[in-house]
Amino acid sequence: MSAYTALSQAGYRASVRDKTTLFFTFAFPLIFLVVFGLIFSGQDVAESGRTYISYTAPGVLSWGVGNAAVFGVGFALMQWRRDDLLRLIRMTPTSLVSVFASRYTLALVIGVVQAVLFVAVAMLPAFGMELDSRWPMALPILVLGVTAFLAMGVIVGSIASTPEAVAAIANCVMVPMAFLSGSFFPMEFMPGWMETLSWALPLRYFNDAISAALVGSGDLGDIAVGCAGLVAFTVVFGAIAARTFRWSNHS
């Protein structure tokens, strides 16, 4: 069995055996969907004329997927360093590429399952989201989004040395970003400067591309811009992650 397969299997087992985390990973975005659905039920977003839920559901989804990617790898990396498991890996001939490839696979599987579950629930009559015919394009976008946020999670997991620090840093980044990127509220409700600022955030690109693919709130150009943005952020975060990565907490 290759190191990649073994690590993926170990990660998969660790995930499915932690029922609480597993449940909340998938329930978290759904809870937001329900809350926003209840608050804004029946309302339309004035300028676009679309229902609120069709506006907000893709945004909540991309935020939920990004959140899971950041927290998942952030916690794993911090924990592996704290428990000296990374030191064990350091002493084997296994390459870091295999290590991260296994985490990547795991994050992709989680992201796809999250998306399928979320879209299925959002399409229930109670929420009434309607899929655009372009919806299959959401899959490659999802992959690019998971990649960018996974790279961000590697940075978080390398900086943080305790679970508290992972949660604090990741929340500090992800929660304001959700609001600033229009995941929870339509960008139309926000002041102009905030919309300008949102272009500096990876979630904005993820939101735009996913929305365009799932509910048709944009054209192919929007999808292309979103994907390009995610690739650019992956490169930047990847470069920072390569510099911040450490095998051990001791110098």
């Binding site: 069995m1 397969t5 073994a6 170990a10 087992r13 660790a14 055996r17 001939p93």
Partner: peptide, 28 residues
């Protein structure tokens, strides 16, 4: 080289056998 790890360096939520099989795979 064989290096005794810290007694915390285990893959979480695996059994002793699964952990050791994972380590074996890491060594190829």
């Amino acid at each position: 080289l064989g290096v005794q790890t810290q007694s915390s360096a285990f893959f979480v939520r695996l059994t002793a056998r699964e952990h050791l099989e994972t380590v074996a795979a890491l060594y190829g």
